[in-house]
């Protein structure tokens, strides 16, 4: 009969996995942010042909299971490009590319929610497209996108657990190891659940704080 006390000495080992999970999430979110924002800008301001090409990227990453993407890029795509990436690097890259496809939809919607009148006004005072995007559209669109972006954080955090498939030493990989070593199931997996809950709660809490700080005075107050 496995002793639950045997689990306790593995707690630091599992908690250390949190750092790997955070690396996956932050790496994926940051890469996804730049990809997503670029895609959204092209979708909102770019030419039709480019939009269609980028739609293929978006549909590919949104329509393919993460496990398939991880395997595809780790075993086939990156090696064929001559890139020797570690499981952690591959996982961050794939999470980022996939998140970029989802984030592009978040940013596209928030860019489109900046009313066209403001774009006309910016043009009327002589702003170029680059300037009006930088100084008028993005400062508003990024604020608007924070709640949806917070949701993307929660999604990518939970998706990061799938990276155990490549052997990335994140929370789930370590918990599976501990479960095998101790013969326990409930406690390690429950502990993993608690860690994910704390990370979700803390991350979305930070995003909520940023959203409140970044909110434009007078706007949307009536809706809260």
């Amino acid at each position: 009969m496995p002793s639950i006390y045997s689990f306790f000495r593995y707690i630091p080992f599992v908690v250390e996995g949190t750092l790997w999970t955070i690396s996956l999430v932050l790496g994926g979110l940051v890469i996804g942010f730049f990809i997503g924002l670029s895609l959204a800008l092209v979708q909102s301001f770019g030419g039709e042909r480019l939009k269609k090409m980028l739609n293929i990227y978006i549909w590919f990453f949104r329509g393919t299971p993460l496990l398939v993407l991880l395997s595809l890029f780790y075993w086939a795509v990156f090696p064929s490009l001559g890139l020797e990436l570690s499981p952690l690097e591959t996982s961050i890259a794939v999470l980022g590319m996939r998140s970029g496809a989802y984030q592009s939809q978040i940013f596209k919607d928030s860019i489109n929610s900046v009313d066209y009148g403001q774009i006309l006004a910016a043009r009327s005072i002589g702003m170029s497209n680059r300037k009006l995007i930088s100084y008028i559209v993005l400062p508003q669109a990024l604020r608007i996108s924070i709640p949806a972006w917070s949701n993307e954080y929660a999604v990518i955090l939970k998706d990061s657990a799938i990276c155990f498939a490549l052997g990335v030493m994140e929370i789930l990989t370590r918990v599976r190891y501990v479960s095998t070593a101790t013969g326990l199931a409930l406690l390690p997996y429950l502990f993993a659940g608690v860690l994910f809950f704390i990370l979700t709660f803390a991350g979305t809490g930070v995003m909520d704080f940023v959203y409140r700080r970044a909110k434009i005075p007078g706007m949307l107050e009536g809706l809260r």
């Binding site: 009148g117 403001q118 006309l120 006004a121 009327s124 002589g126 008028i136 508003q140 434009i216 706007m219």
Partner: peptide, 17 residues
């Protein structure tokens, strides 16, 4: 050339942020 023309819109179109 647009800088030579000031334009005032029906719906104000101020920059909200």
């Amino acid at each position: 050339l647009r800088q030579k023309i000031g334009f005032v819109f029906q719906e104000f179109n101020l920059f909200h942020h």
